[in-house]
């Protein structure tokens, strides 16, 4: 499944942040987004995931193909690790949670309540969720936050395996993952302020 973004304009809080953005993400490829804080990476990812409509432009190949992971992992502290994962596996109608547990070395923690996990362990659980969705395009927003070096290795390994199976990944991150990924610097696409005399529906 190829993800194609054409001439995208996105806004945060009614103000355009990025414009003229186009890229293509083919199966087996990873695309890493770079750019300073507040440039609109999160907004872009939420648009691609379908949570937010773009101002204009087209996003093709998204929808039921996307597995999104944002800043929060959607983990319920009163459920155990296995219960959390099983829930998402059933929601997405995918198979067993075994491979996901293996990939992030969560097997020893399965019966632990997620509330008792450390921040890094929670993050691993949140990333393991991607493996039970069975969806080809991963859209990840700062996936490595609070992960230690070995956990980052696990993550990179999981992404590599996903790409090898024909999946693809769109990742906003600042650290080097050791992936063969294309880089997309979004800074140049920063939206220019609208001209002032054009006093229209956007009030500018």
């Amino acid at each position: 499944m190829t993800l194609t973004v054409t001439d995208l304009v996105i806004a945060r809080g009614g103000v355009p942040v990025l414009e003229g953005l186009s890229f293509t993400l083919n199966p087996g490829r990873a695309l890493v987004l770079r750019g300073p804080n507040g440039i609109g990476k999160t907004t872009l990812l939420r648009c691609v995931a379908g949570l937010q409509p773009p101002v204009s432009g087209r996003i093709e190949g998204a929808g039921d193909t996307i597995a999104y992971a944002g800043h929060s992992d959607g983990i319920k502290p009163t459920l155990t690790v296995a219960e959390n994962l099983t829930f998402w596996a059933r929601v997405f109608g995918a198979g067993s949670i075994g491979p996901a547990l293996d990939a992030y070395e969560l097997n020893d923690l399965t019966d632990r309540h997620a509330g008792n996990l450390s921040a890094g362990q929670k993050r691993r659980l949140g990333l393991a969720r991607l493996l039970v969705t069975g969806r080809p395009i991963w859209v990840l927003d700062e996936p490595t936050v609070s992960l230690d070096r070995s956990a980052v290795e696990m993550f990179a390994g999981a992404v590599r395996a996903h790409l090898a199976q024909g999946g693809s990944a769109l990742i906003a991150t600042h650290i080097e993952l050791g992936l063969e990924a294309e880089l997309l610097e979004v800074g140049p696409y920063k939206a220019r302020p609208a001209p002032l005399d054009d006093f229209d529906g956007g009030f500018l």
């Binding site: 009614g14 103000v15 355009p16 009030f203 500018l204």
Partner: peptide, 17 residues
Amino acid sequence: EIRARRIRALMARERVA
């Protein structure tokens, strides 16, 4: 209300710029 919104929009524009 329109003027209030315009002020908001202008201030947001300043922040972006």
